[in-house]
Amino acid sequence: MKLKRIGVDLAKQVFQIHGVDSHEQAVCRKQLKRSQMLDFFRQLEPCTVAMEACGSSHYWARELRVLGHEVRLIAPQFVKPYVKSGKNDANDAEAICEAASRPNMRYVEVKSAEQQAGQALHRIRSRLIRARTALVNEIRGLLGEFGLVESRHGVAATRRLAQAALADAENGLPGQMRGLLVELQGELVEHEARLSRLDETIQRRAREDERVERLMLVEGIGPITATALVSAVGDARQFRSARQFAALAGVGSSPTLQRRQGAAGPDQQARRYLLAHAAGSRSPSGAQALPGQGGSTQPVAPALAVSTQPEHRHGRFGEQECPDRLGDPQSGRLLSTWLKIKSQAAQPAKC
């Protein structure tokens, strides 16, 4: 069967296929089970395969590329206008196939397995930080009910508060509450240990990855932000300008401009994570350096210095939440500098 383009509506078990020939006539409409997907595409001549950028899309894109097909991922908001009638799998597959025929359609860059593993690392770390923050607030709230408060904030202050509460036998804390507080302390120590292991993994990756080291030359970017950028963006050459990259990251532009400029990019969770560290990972010397490394050698206009948030109180790679937007239109200068550093490299790396 000779097909020009195929639209695939992805799912967990049952996939919908819509294929057209060189005359744009629909010649293939069928459902495939998960076990049949690779066998079906293995029998076809290489063609264009379009899918929505959703869960498991990057995995299938990698698998189909191995078979010789040209895979294009389209953001769901760009597919929706081409749905002709009621929403079902067949209509969605047809809409995806139609959207891929547009000459000016923008596509999502396919992520490698290493990129997705890097993003998984940062997402797990972000979840642990949220869980630790919730635990710290719970400890402070429970002790406050017994008149035990601490004016200072942060994990270290809460740890000292809990230790002081357990050490003081005359503070009126009931025995049952003391037992619960010991358990909460152990839970906090476990969170700290897991975060330390993840931070060590990120530091090791920062030392081993040339792209991360090059990004860390930009003032205000440390190992957390650099590894998160490399994992989320991949190949920066997919952007025509620094402004387009800024729109993807949500820096220095309105939400409307973000939708118009770039493209399909990381989801809101990834965007918030990138901006949190980009806005607050600065140190007094202007860069977040690894142990044994010096400060920044690439001064940039105060793109990251616009945050009005105080320095991080938690003391480990900017774990305090920061605003979603930097609020400075000149923040794109940081991104422009990054692209210049990439283009000046002897062998442009996928960053």
Rank of each mutant, 00 (worst) to 15 (best):
Q203A: 13
S307R: 01
H314L: 04
V300I: 15
Q309R: 10
A246S: 13
V212K: 03
S231D: 08
R316Q: 14
E200W: 02
G332Q: 15
S231I: 01
D209G: 04
A246P: 01
S331M: 04
G280I: 01
Q288N: 09
E210K: 08
V212N: 07
L304H: 08
P291Y: 13
G318P: 09
E321W: 04
A279V: 11
A249Y: 09
T227R: 00
P284Q: 04
R237S: 15
P329F: 08
F245W: 13
S336W: 11
H314I: 06
T297Y: 11
A276Y: 06
L215R: 02
S241D: 13
S281T: 08
P299K: 07
Q258Y: 03
D267I: 12
D209H: 10
L275G: 07
H277M: 15
G280E: 06
Q238V: 11
P302R: 11
G222D: 02
S285P: 02
Q238E: 05
P284T: 01
A249F: 11
A232V: 12
T225Q: 05
A249V: 12
G222E: 01
Q320R: 11
R207P: 06
F245T: 00
Y273S: 12
R325E: 12
S254P: 08
L248V: 13
L304S: 07
I202R: 01
A270L: 08
G292L: 12
A303E: 02
L229F: 06
G315W: 03
A228H: 09
A226I: 04
S283C: 11
R282T: 09
Y273K: 04
S241A: 03
T297V: 06
P299I: 03
Q238W: 09
A236M: 15
E210R: 03
Q258I: 15
A242T: 02
L326V: 10
R240G: 05
A289C: 13
T308V: 15
Q203S: 10
S241E: 12
S283V: 08
G292A: 06
F239Q: 00
P223N: 00
E213C: 07
W338C: 12
D209K: 06
A270R: 08
T337A: 06
L274Y: 00
Q298N: 05
H312G: 12
G294P: 02
Q298A: 13
G234K: 05
Q244K: 08
R204G: 02
D328I: 05
A246V: 09
P329Q: 01
L275C: 15
R197I: 04
A289M: 07
T256Y: 14
A249C: 14
I224L: 14
P299W: 10
V251E: 06
L248T: 03
R325V: 02
L217K: 13
I202S: 00
R197M: 07
R197N: 05
E208Y: 12
R271W: 05
T201F: 03
A232E: 11
A278T: 10
S296D: 01
L217S: 07
S281H: 15
S281L: 09
G332I: 09
T256V: 14
P302H: 01
E210P: 06
G292D: 02
R271N: 00
G280H: 06
F239N: 06
S241G: 07
V212P: 03
L290D: 05
S296G: 10
L198R: 03
L274V: 00
T256K: 15
D324Q: 09
S285H: 05
V300K: 01
P310I: 01
R214P: 01
